[in-house]
Design a protein around this nucleic acid. Structure first.
Lengths: 245, 245
DNA sequence: CGTCGCTTTGATCTAAATCAAGTTGAGTGG
DNA sequence: CCACTCAACTTGATTTAGATCAAAGCGACG
């Protein structure tokens, strides 16, 4: 399983090296470095330590790295969306987090990735070598602190998500999800979900049918509206919050 | 809710300051500092930074700190056991972790505790001021790295636990729990669980009845034996591992 | 404009929750 | 030292939230 995953990844990387060009930081893209440092962890780190960042693109559903694969890089989403997940041997999947533009993912303390990562849609990432980050952290306390910050942020999310997965009802989970996505990707009061119903279900510990039914019910209650299955506008955040347990 | 929690804690602390003595590190107690530094995070940190550590004791079911309470201290279990948990407004509880002798808990990146903590049984902890740790991390990269390590360790556990809560069956959850406790607290092939069935249920996202039924079934299959409800001996770890999904 | 993957909706099933007694055993007081 | 008590635990009966199975819609794309 482990070795197969590695081999598959190497082939993918090879293929990509041919079909995509690797370019320097600050290409004309989303999340420009003009953004305040506090909001852009990579800029903050590279600014401090002068690290080299590259860009890379993945097609929809393409694996970025596998579970237990050596963690060679740390990534930041420039555009697109990524899912991080674990699998059981029979294929059951738990998505631990969705990564949206600006988010850093793939940062590990140990030598291997604890979750696999895949592009949900066509996605471009910025990446830096883990080793160079570690090195910078060894001399620069600000970098070391930033690494801790990022891991602590992931831990906070995981702690909230354990409560959701262990104790919330289906409707409460969906309400929590909608409020999270609203906060993270709403533009002009509307959100364009990059992920399908199955991804949402695997994030919330539900089936895709249960997610669909909950969304339909919220629509019939006038709490949200659709323009196409993945374009959602929240019409009553307050009522949604009251359903979030 | 927030203010009530704080006030309650202050009263508890006050009460304890009177009834328990606060002493220096290296009192004649469990987890001696003779242990290798790598296995004793506190010794490692205090050794580097010369921090002051104190001891403190809590009675069974006593609150150590509340959710959202300012995180003034970081703790290490000397003896006893602690549960960290979140509550929903209607009382549903998700235990995120059990802390056993040697474990560090209560370390936060932000200013407040994300989970509450209670002693499961009479418990003694070692504690250091968070502020002094932060200060040490600001000048000593080794301390900064250690803080990151500890948070990363908690994150790894939370990631594994999300998979359990989102996707494992009741029997798989109980099998995972038994193997975790076997690894962490088995002595002479036997484990003495400090927590009740309800705690186990709230850790695994199950009811206490479901936990009890799973344990009974494992006993009837000869995979484990009881001497009293909380003394368990695993008779067939291999079969248990095969049930862990 | 046809196709195929995604989504919705309906019918049925089931794992685990809930409700409900008993049973056990650790700790207490006589 | 024994018996009493009460919380913890086990076990059984029933219910139910969500899963599973099944079949239409729909909508984006070639």
């Amino acid at each position: 399983m482990y070795h197969i995953a590695i081999r598959r990844k190497e082939m993918v990387m090879l293929n990509q090296s041919i079909t995509h060009s690797v370019v320097n930081t600050n290409a004309p893209h989303a999340v420009p470095s003009a953004v305040a440092p506090a909001a852009n962890p990579f800029a903050e780190i590279t600014g401090h330590a002068g690290l080299i960042a590259s860009e890379f693109s993945y097609k929809k559903d393409e694996e970025i790295y596998g579970e237990d694969e050596p963690a060679e890089y740390v990534y930041q989403v420039i555009s697109g969306a990524v899912r991080s997940y674990k699998l059981l041997s029979d294929g059951r999947r738990q998505i631990g987090a969705f990564h949206l533009p600006g988010d850093v993912f793939g940062l590990e303390f140990g030598s291997a990735h604890r979750l696999a990562a895949e592009a949900i849609i066509d996605t471009t990432v910025r990446l830096v070598k883990r080793r160079s980050l570690e090195q910078a952290a060894g001399t620069d306390v600000a970098v070391a602190r930033k690494l801790w910050t990022m891991t602590a942020h992931d831990l906070r999310h995981a702690e909230d998500h354990m409560l959701l997965l262990g104790r919330k009802t289906a409707m409460e989970r969906v309400a929590t999800f909608l409020l999270e996505m609203d906060r993270r990707l709403a533009v002009a009061g509307m959100m364009a979900l990059p992920m399908c119903r199955r991804d949402i279900g695997d994030y919330l510990g539900l089936t895709l049918e249960t997610v669909s039914r909950a969304l339909s019910q919220l629509q019939s209650q006038g709490i949200l509206g659709f323009s196409g299955a993945r374009q959602i506008v929240l019409r009553n955040r307050q009522r949604l919050r009251s359903m979030d347990a």
